[in-house]
């Protein structure tokens, strides 16, 4: 049952990512139809910027995120049990042991980052450590480990880069339209394509953002399912999720840009909202419901 869930999720992610690529292709096509003489410059500009961003994101994202969240290493001397839980889960998953960090914060939350399982980091708040029992901690850490093993962090990076590409290009094009050439070919079909194209380009950043969020939500379900596959104990994760939502402490370092990385949305206000196109995480209720359906 778990495996079928995982397969379904993977297919969905693949579908969204393909849609994304199709979208970017369409975007570039409209661009070249409308602004043929400067599209090369636009593409080169957009690509350079997004490659630079992606390179930095790929190699330094973990360090940047850790510094943003003011995390420190969880040593064995200080957090023996936590280290043992992580090591145990890594044995079950047959994966390298990620580095373990803690954030001094009373809020209950956790996230994973890095570019591959060999260079990954799991970070949890001290509040989480104090309020969760061992089974619940296992569930949370298994969830983060699942994100790492699914290469969700890499997927996230690719998606962010694609969104960046679309946004930057769309911005550049919208600007250049003010200086742009007048339409020489005044036939009707050309005008319609031009209008659709312009609307498409202007609206594209919004679509791009929506697809990014859809992928992020989808991966949460997948990580939950995989976590249960590891711990063979769904109650741990379910109870942990309940405690995490009921908690009203605000994570001080939380901001919108990194919120999709966390196990539950660190922005407390957003947490109670219904599932919508704009949410980074599925509602806890729907996650618990899916977890209960496993097996």
């Amino acid at each position: 049952m778990i495996l079928r869930d995982v397969r379904k999720n993977k297919r969905k992610t693949f579908f969204i990512v393909s849609l994304f690529f199709l979208f970017v292709t369409l975007f570039v096509y409209f661009l070249s139809v409308l602004f043929f003489d400067n599209v090369m410059i636009a593409v080169i500009f957009g690509l350079t910027v997004s490659i630079l961003v992606s390179y930095n994101a790929y190699y330094y994202s973990d360090k940047i995120v850790l510094r943003l969240n003011k995390a420190r290493v969880a040593t064995k001397e200080e957090f023996l049990q936590l280290n043992y839980i992580l090591e145990g889960l890594c044995i079950a998953a047959n994966s390298p042991v990620p580095k373990l960090y803690v954030m001094e914060d009373t809020a209950l939350n956790a996230f994973a980052t890095g570019r591959n399982p060999e260079n990954a980091v799991i970070c949890i708040t001290t509040g989480l450590l104090n309020k969760l029992d061992k089974n619940e901690l296992e569930g949370v850490i298994a969830h983060e480990l699942a994100h790492i093993r699914n290469y969700d962090i890499l997927l996230q990076t690719i998606v962010i880069v694609m969104v960046g590409f679309v946004v930057i290009l769309s911005d550049a094009v919208t600007r250049s339209m003010f200086y742009g050439k007048s339409s020489d070919d005044d036939n009707k079909a050309g005008a319609i394509i031009a209008i659709i194209g312009i609307i498409f380009i202007i609206l594209s950043p919004i679509f791009a953002e929506l697809m990014k969020l859809a992928i992020s939500r989808n991966r949460e379900y997948l990580a939950d399912a995989k976590a249960v596959e590891l711990t063979r104990n769904k109650d741990g994760l379910i109870n942990a999720l309940r405690k995490l939502t009921d908690d009203t402490e605000v994570l001080e370092q939380a901001n919108k840009s990194s919120s999709s990385l966390f196990i539950v949305n660190p922005l407390v206000k957003e947490r109670k909202k219904k599932n919508s196109l704009w949410s980074t995480h599925p509602t806890i209720d729907s996650r618990i419901e899916r977890l209960q359906n496993i097996q």
């Binding site: 023996l80 043992y84 090591e87 145990g88 044995i91 079950a92």
Partner: peptide, 11 residues
């Protein structure tokens, strides 16, 4: 911790 690891390794 070791008991847990044995259980996971067995799994």
């Amino acid at each position: 911790g070791t008991e847990d690891k044995i259980a996971y390794a067995r799994q």
